[in-house]
Amino acid sequence: MLSVKHLLGIKELNAEDIRLILKTADNFKQVLQRPIKKVPSLRDTTVANIFFENSTRTRLSFELAEKRLGADVVNFSASGSSVSKGETLIDTVKNILAMKVDMVVMRHSASGAPWFLANHINASIVNAGDGINEHPTQALLDAYSMKERVGDLKGKHITIIGDIMHSRVALSNIYCLNKLGAKVMVAGPPTLIPKHITDLGVRVEHNLKKALEWCDVANVLRIQLERQHKPLFSTLREYALYYGVNRSMLDSLQKDIVIMHPGPINRGVELNSDVADSKQSIILDQVENGVAVRMAVIYLLSGKREIE
């Protein structure tokens, strides 16, 4: 049983919650490999996917997860909705809930938006990414995919590379990996690494080669140009030169490390195609596992639903 009613952030979960989600995801992964990839557990549940920010993977993944649990799904995206007429977040969500929706999956560009919502409505909320704060399901599917490749994460070395400053994936990953007992390092140019990040119990490295030599798994993050309001490095070409992960660099290491990326990839910037499409990369496994992990989260949260 989860200790929370909502999945707002990994910060609020304990290690047991995370293990329970990952274990339940195993069962759903098995379901997804059957000819009929669907179970009827949530046939009495309606889920609203509310996306105030663009998304391909996360939104499709949530929608598939919900449908494969037998839930009814409604989708909402801010563009083309009454949000552009000035409707507030609470009003928008309350109107959706008035149509008898039991659970809300929300992505929002403002950090903390899901917490705000949780204080005002009764339905369970799953955070699908809020601003530069957290992206809990991504961290869970990352942990699941790492575990699948390298076994128990206790004591394993994980490096997160790139735009740590603007990445909700980085923060959720750090919380999640710490709770599972992994050792975490963040690597990137000083301008993209928040000042006091070491308070979270992570190492910081500015030399990419050293960072890769240290780790078992490298999680490479996207450079989020849309969130960088002032220039933090001179050119993308320079960034790629110093922090882009490429084949020759991986070949120069003594071991085969696992490469991950939450997508969408800027090919040739943070990650070269000869790495992204290689055997060392588990990028597509991450996407596949995403559906199973999200099924686990929604299934476990649905047990917390109050029946009127």
């Binding site: 557990s41 549940t45 917390k304």
Partner: peptide, 18 residues
């Protein structure tokens, strides 16, 4: 996952292997 009491039972059931 096929039970009809996912919401009504007091505790959510933890699955075993199929």
């Amino acid at each position: 996952f096929y039970r009809d009491d996912v919401h009504t039972s007091s505790d959510i059931q933890i699955p075993s292997v199929t």
